[in-house]
């Protein structure tokens, strides 16, 4: 076994190795230093040397944010492949692969529990499941979580990590943007806090719906956040994009997010905002 996995440096933006690689020692995607893998994992999957944020799973996310145990909802909701979609591969088999890889039925985990001793609902997207894409199941789960937040008056937190709407469910995926946003309109009217946490990457129909609709939009450092993907933009304008374009810090400068917060501070940051909004 190699000391660390080799990594292709030629991969385009947004496609580098963002998961913590396998191996006893790993090479950090951010600083390229060789670090002890366990040190990264014990540090919320953040590089202890350069603070590069490795991508984490939806369940790891929930564990970082909840005080302790949480109750998962709608765990059994699965896509019925409504279009019987097939490209070079059948969507049904992509679903099956995603399920085997992540242990979940689709690209989002929805749960309730305590955060800073306060009842909250948290939805976390799972990038490992077809790129965290949003189809009917993701749309339905976030909408149900929003409705649950309404009925229990618990704040809603959604952690995005997604390439956008899922092509394999066609316009059904697109309409989830309107469905979730309509539910968020009611949550907004009911004066219940909604905090959107944007992580790498958050693009397309996810950004263009709930991820931008938080009372607070909080991003992890260095996350790719945007509507159109960088390659599509480069093709449209036929020029190279500036350094840092569509990264969290860029969005902060342009007024689209409230704060860039280190993952290790995220829970405390959310807790403080809820105290300031609700007590």
């Amino acid at each position: 076994m190699a000391w660390f996995k080799r990594e292709d440096q030629k991969l385009p933006v947004g496609e580098q190795v963002n998961r913590v690689p396998e191996g006893l020692w790993i090479k950090c995607t951010g600083c390229r230093e060789i670090i002890y893998r366990k040190d990264v994992l014990q540090n919320a999957s953040v590089c202890p040397k350069c603070a590069f944020h490795f991508r984490i799973t939806a369940r790891e996310r929930l564990e970082l944010l909840f005080d302790g145990p949480y109750e998962e909802f709608d765990r059994e909701l699965a896509s019925a492949d409504p279009l019987k979609f097939r490209d070079t591969k059948a969507y049904a088999s992509r679903l099956k692969d995603g399920q085997e890889k992540t242990g979940g039925k689709d690209a989002l985990v929805s749960a309730s529990g305590k955060l800073d001793n306060r009842d909250v609902l948290i939805c976390a997207m799972e990038y490992g499941f077809i790129g965290g894409s949003m189809g009917v199941v993701v749309g339905e789960k976030i909408t149900r979580a929003t409705e649950r937040a309404m009925s229990t008056r618990a704040p809603l937190i959604v952690v995005s990590c997604s390439g956008g709407a899922r092509m394999m469910e066609g316009a059904l995926s697109l309409m989830q943007m309107a469905k979730i946003s309509s539910a968020l309109a009611r949550l907004d009217d009911a004066k219940i806090p909604f905090i959107s946490v944007l992580t790498d990457p958050t693009t397309g129909g996810v950004t263009a719906s709930f991820a931008m609709l938080g009372d607070l939009n909080i991003a992890e450092p260095g996350a790719l956040i945007g509507f159109a993907g960088p390659r599509v933009i480069e093709q449209t304008i036929r020029q190279k994009l500036p350094e840092g374009f569509q990264r969290s810090e860029f969005l902060l400068t342009h007024g689209m997010i409230d704060a860039v917060v280190d993952r290790r501070e995220m829970k405390a940051s959310i807790a403080r905002s809820l105290r300031l909004f609700l007590n």
């Binding site: 309109a185 509507f227 569509q246």
Partner: peptide, 26 residues
């Protein structure tokens, strides 16, 4: 589709669309 350009991203294309989705519901 919405314009996928540098200036559109700078001014918050995603936010503009998201905001309309929520506000049209109201």
């Amino acid at each position: 589709g919405a314009y996928p350009g540098l200036d559109a991203e700078e001014r918050g294309q995603a936010e503009a669309i998201a905001f309309n989705l929520r506000e049209m519901a109201k």
